[in-house]
Amino acid sequence: MACKFKRTAAIVSQECLLPGIFSMWLEAGEIAKEAVPGQFISMYTKDKSKLLPRPISLCEIDKEKGFLRVVYRVTGKDTGTEQFSRMVKGDTIEIMGPLGNGFPLDAGKGRKAFLIGGGIGVPPMLELAKQLDGEKQLIMGYRDKQFLTEEFEQNGAFYLATEDGSAGTKGNVLDAIRENSLTADIIYACGPSPMLRAIKRYAEEKQIVCYVSMEEHMACGIGACLACVCKSKEVDGHSHVHNKRVCKDGPVFLSTEVEI
């Protein structure tokens, strides 16, 4: 059984990448040692009025140091993520992880892969790009301003799409794939639902194996409360209906397996 831990983590560094987008390194010990790309951690606020965890994907994993990197968006005023963004080196935060299944690395081994990220779905693609052993085409879509692009450039063939056309292909990630005539035998994707829905359709048309990372509101983060389900084709292991748990059975699913 995979090991999970709830612990206090010290913040190693925090940096603002863009207005509203922050990058935080955490000293997470055993959580980092167990983690694989595509997994996430639950981050808890210190504010007793905000009790539920904020699930945030792992952007980088440094097993040697026991460090984890998360890159996250502040969603608004007085939110939990805003509180995280004000934390500085040396502050501590409660976290639990590593949670979820992660991206299957074996499935992509030696193959030609698309790693697709959109918006705040971009961060988990970085650790995947570092660990995946195959031909990597990294296709990242942003509304306007970009983040993590230099890191992506160092870990594969990098393609960029922006909605406003300020950099790379004007349009979305699929426009970038078409404009550059890219092909692949496997897709890994994380991003907003409309993007995942379009990629699912694309993968089905082209008959490419496609893994998507899903999002849902969470309470326990470990598969007990049944808050975070998504509609699945297969019967789920818990209730034997068609409700897979994003926190435990996911967040990564075969695109053919889930309704997006």
Binding site: K48, S49, K50, L51, L52, E216, H217, M218, A219, C225, L226, A227, C228, V229, C230, S239, H240, V241, H242, N243
Partner: peptide, 24 residues
């Protein structure tokens, strides 16, 4: 077996939470 309710099934409220899991 019960399927339960559609998502979102939970929300955070001040000092607590609200759930409508629907007894899946």
């Amino acid at each position: 077996p019960w399927e339960g309710n559609p998502t979102p099934r939970i929300a955070e409220v001040h000092g607590g939470m609200m759930n409508a899991i629907g007894l899946q």
